[in-house]
Design a protein around this nucleic acid. Structure first.
Lengths: 145, 145
DNA sequence: ACAATAAAAGACAAAAATATCTTTTATTAT
DNA sequence: ATAATAAAAGATATTTTTGTCTTTTATTGT
């Protein structure tokens, strides 16, 4: 099992792609994005529709249309994308899937995994959508298989 | 998304259950285990068959039969259960699902997630199957929803 | 207005994960 | 030997995730 669902992997990669491609204005089409991150175009379209509905990215139809990210939203934490797609169980859920797991009724792994979840949460809360833009423009980071 | 698959959650809970129930000899039946960890009995049976084939737990058929764990195996790290069920992508895989992600061709999250994966791996490698036995016997830890 | 473009929406399909049912095999006790 | 027990094995069913296809809607340029 991976940390994120496949849907979420595509979502994050797409958001990074859109962010750095439209940081200085303009829009980027679904074909371009799908190629840029190596993902199935029509499936990705569904994912982006969802993120768009939730206001995490923006889009316009028609010629010169496409997806983009409002400059102000480049400061949003990546955790919002993850939460929108995969929910918050990665941040708050019990590792062993116990609904009632808590400090007062812990599973054997409760304390250790709480620490790990907190680290993941902190990382994704302090990482922003736009912070890799310059490295992505310079080709220092990859978004493709 | 949770950290582990549902199958793996059941597997870990079952292994903890079997470990503490058979630490002093004896065997425990599938019905008992399924009740003890709140899991679907027949599905759990499949999971335990698999762990048994892989030598992580043992079993006997017939009257007085059931599952148990060889005392020597109580020192095995939990990571072996996880790896047997969910594979090792939690320990080594790229957070964004990139096959080619590495130090020399990193995804934007590579370094941060490498640190997290290492923590998870270390935790599961240093946690043993049997180390919660006494707390489980005392009811200090829960394995049920 | 009209044609072209590109995302949105809705329906559908395939694959994987989760769950259940039935039959077989090994073991034990009578 | 036989009956009872309990896991192993194989087949099937359901649900969720992932992926695709088709139609509709909004926007732009002519």
């Amino acid at each position: 099992m991976a940390i994120f669902s496949k849907t979420c992997e595509y979502a994050i990669r797409a958001v990074f792609y859109i962010a750095h491609k439209t940081a200085n204005g303009g829009r980027v089409g679904i074909k371009d994005i799908a190629t840029g991150i190596d993902s199935p175009e029509l499936y990705l379209a569904k994912i982006l529709q969802d993120l768009s509905r939730k206001g995490l990215i923006s889009s316009f139809k028609g010629p010169n249309g496409g997806f983009f990210i409002e400059p102000a939203l480049l400061n949003k934490p990546l955790s919002e994308i993850v939460e929108a797609v995969d929910g918050d169980s990665l941040f708050y859920g019990c590792a062993l899937g116990l609904k009632q797991c808590s400090e007062i009724n812990p599973c054997p792994l409760h304390n250790d995994f709480k620490a790990i979840r907190d680290k993941i949460h902190l990382l994704l809360s302090t990482t922003t959508i736009g912070e890799f833009n310059s490295e992505l423009m310079n080709g220092l980071f990859s978004l493709k298989k």
